Simulated assay, not measured.
Amino acid sequence: MEIHTSTLGSAAVLRCEGRLNMVSASQLRSAIDGTVKDGTKHVVVDLSGTSFIDSSGLGALIAGLKRARQAGGDLRIAAPGSQVRTVLTLTNLDRVLRPHERLEDAVHGW
């Protein structure tokens, strides 16, 4: 998996491309931790390029949410594909990590 970092408004955007699984979840955790340590409290994980997510990937998102909230910010997810959306729904994590259809929607309101 590749993670591309950019900024949109006051939020850091982490675009994940590939499979977010046991092998790559630590990459995402490190990227979120680094972003928050650098002082950016608002993080958006763009999942438009993510073709697959498993429980390790979900764990990385939840850990990132916790990290951002401890810093006084938040983490949002944007543009999940059908497989990612299905996993979020089946695990009821779509209630905690509410998916935004577009990246711009996720950034709006900060």
Results as ranks from 00 to 15, higher is better:
73 G>S: 03
49 G>E: 11
78 A>H: 08
53 I>F: 01
16 C>E: 09
107 V>G: 10
5 T>W: 03
107 V>N: 06
25 A>H: 12
79 A>Y: 05
103 L>F: 00
28 L>M: 13
39 G>F: 02
68 A>W: 01
98 R>L: 02
32 I>M: 01
77 I>H: 05
108 H>N: 11
66 K>H: 04
44 V>R: 07
91 T>D: 05
11 A>D: 12
107 V>Y: 11
48 S>Y: 04
57 G>D: 08
1 M>A: 14
96 V>A: 11
96 V>Y: 08
87 V>I: 10
83 Q>H: 15
105 D>H: 14
62 I>Y: 06
84 V>Q: 05
10 S>D: 12
39 G>S: 02
89 T>G: 05
102 R>H: 15
53 I>P: 07
34 G>Y: 07
88 L>C: 09
80 P>L: 10
31 A>N: 11
22 M>Y: 09
10 S>G: 08
98 R>W: 00
53 I>N: 02
90 L>N: 09
60 A>N: 06
1 M>D: 02
92 N>S: 15
64 G>S: 10
17 E>L: 12
83 Q>S: 13
106 A>N: 09
72 G>D: 01
61 L>F: 03
100 H>A: 06
95 R>P: 02
55 S>E: 07
87 V>S: 04
82 S>D: 12
43 V>F: 01
67 R>K: 12
77 I>A: 06
41 K>H: 12
17 E>V: 15
64 G>D: 13
53 I>D: 02
99 P>T: 08
41 K>Q: 11
81 G>V: 08
15 R>D: 01
39 G>E: 01
23 V>L: 14
78 A>R: 05
66 K>G: 03
104 E>V: 13
91 T>F: 11
60 A>S: 13
75 L>C: 11
77 I>D: 03
105 D>Y: 06
60 A>V: 05
7 T>Y: 10
108 H>E: 14
50 T>F: 10
103 L>M: 03
3 I>R: 07
43 V>W: 01
93 L>V: 14
88 L>S: 11
37 K>L: 10
